[in-house]
Amino acid sequence: MSTFLLILVTGVGLGALYFLVASGLSLIYGLMGVLNFAHGSFLTIGAFSGLWISTKVFPNPTTWTFLASMLAGGIVAGLFALLMEQLVINRLYNRHIDQALVTVGVSLVVTALLGGWFGFDARFLPTPLWFMKAVTIGDAIIPIDRFIYIAVAAILLIAMLSILRFTRIGLIIRAGVENRSMVSALGINVRLAFSTVFFIGGFAAGVGGVLISVFSYGVSPLMGGSWLIYGFIVVVVGGMGSIAGSAIAAMLIGITNQFANYYVTGLGDFVVVIILAAVLLTKPTGLLGKVSH
């Protein structure tokens, strides 16, 4: 029972990290039809910004400096996403394949740039000491960092859902996901919604990058690539354009991954891929998909 609980919480924590990567991907694809291969770079840029705050700006890690790291990671990654959208994506309006291709180029350049500056070895991101502790629930001993991932992801999930639900720009985004041409035809400026979605997606990925550096014990220019593939899988399983779908799929995949890995090491990755193929072949729009581009 204690092992079961440990694996379950770890799976949910992993799912929380997947969600941070996938939510932005899902919104960007849902609204603009852009398959964003540069999303892994947002994550890496966020992680490096967080590393900079936690080592150079505030050398003594406390809870507050870690919060500052996450915030800085989110903001820098969000601004980078905005910059990319303005400089590159906007100029390829409605050329969806070219937009996807150009993001592949951006991800290559960012990885090489960071690798050239900082090298490809993983760097340790200092955390407050209490991150190393564990809590006891019943007879299960669970490392505390998992709860941090879950809490941060939950806060961002609520924030994103509230923005989508209660603000004007959120309304435009939701309408745009369902029918973008109609929204533009009504004279509403969709471009602003594009920029918002890129900033939000970059922000979530940047915060995720800082947390992933804690989870995988290091910051490296290559970290974005492998998490991006999981992000894609979560988005596709959850349904393009649906934040709630991404959240559910992220949990499903995180938990399944952990349980499969517990029984056979390495089986987790394989099972995740099988889930993806199964969902796509039975319901090509994903669990809660709204768009079918």
């Binding site: 290559l108 350049v109 990885t111 090489a112 740039l113 690798g115 050239g116 500056w117």
Partner: peptide, 8 residues
Amino acid sequence: GPLAEPAF
């Protein structure tokens, strides 16, 4: 540094 990386 980046120029030494072919991928860049």
